[in-house]
């Protein structure tokens, strides 16, 4: 590995952005976040970026590195071509605040609108439930989500088409799947999935699955089964007929 590497970091606010180039020493095992920190400490003290755990567990340091949405703390320089500058940009599906920090508050508003967990009454007198491990393996996969919002970033419904008012995005479809498939949950969110959550906008291009740092099979395990439930509920001709007859 060379001793120094160059980084092209997108800097600025909503009003004006431009790439600034920095050179910084590289040491063994270094990740992109280390480089950003070094640049911050030595050359650009007001360079804005978010980070917390630096171990891929909090999902704060999402960025686009050489155009690919990734966590800066889990991207090793050794895995990047260093003969040319490494470009580091903020995620694009949300408004820019400054440099690498974006306004992700929309995500927090969306989550609040999703119907919360509603458990069935406890199974036993001591107020507890009996749940089998095989019944929660899938839900546990969804609950690995660290809310880095990289899936939201690459989802073309949000990124290109800006359907933030009609579609909750892959992160929250995973969240809904985690609730819907929770063995204790009794709430019904199918009507919302179809309308307010806009699941129909997803045309399963699987971009979200590709970028998920937790390797959650977002499309196959969360979105498609939810789509099937919506179809069963609202578009199954036999079920529709039965419903009509009942009326």
């Amino acid at each position: 590995m060379s001793d120094k590497a160059s980084f092209k970091i997108l800097r600025g606010t909503k009003q004006e952005v431009k790439f600034e180039q920095y050179e910084t020493p590289v040491s063994e095992g270094m990740v992109v976040l280390d480089a950003v920190h070094q640049i911050q400490a030595e050359q650009a003290p007001d360079l804005a970026c978010r980070w917390n755990c630096k171990a891929g567990k909090c999902g704060s340091c999402s960025a686009e590195i050489n155009g690919i949405p990734r966590l800066m703390c889990m991207t090793r320089l050794a895995d990047l071509p260093l003969h040319k500058p490494v470009s580091v940009e903020p995620i694009k599906a949300f408004p820019l605040i400054k440099d690498l920090a974006t306004d992700v508050s929309w995500n927090f508003h969306v989550k609040k609108k999703i119907k919360p967990f509603k458990p069935r009454p406890p199974d036993t007198a001591d107020g507890t439930w009996r749940i089998w491990q095989e019944d929660i393996d899938r839900v546990q996969e969804f609950r690995k989500c660290i809310e880095c919002f990289l899936c939201q970033d690459v989802c073309h419904v949000l990124r290109e088409h800006q359907k933030h008012d009609e579609f909750i995005g892959p992160r929250f479809l995973v969240h809904v799947a985690g609730l819907e498939m929770h063995p204790l949950d009794t709430e019904d969110r199918l009507e919302e999935l179809k309308k307010a959550y806009g699941i129909g906008f997803c045309n399963i291009t699987k971009c979200c699955t590709t970028v998920c740092p937790e390797e959650i099979a977002i499309t196959d395990n969360a979105i498609i089964p939810l789509k099937e439930r919506v179809v069963d509920q609202f578009y199954d001709p036999l079920a529709m007929l039965l419903r009509k007859l009942k009326k």
């Binding site: 919360p116 967990f117 507890t128 009996r130 749940i131 089998w132 491990q133 929660i136 839900v139 929770h182």
Partner: peptide, 19 residues
């Protein structure tokens, strides 16, 4: 801990379905 389960936490299980 039991309260967390009632709020939706999904802990690993024993063979007889308890936490």
């Amino acid at each position: 801990v039991r309260e967390l389960e009632a709020w939706g936490a999904v802990f690993d299980r024993t063979k007889d379905g308890r936490i």
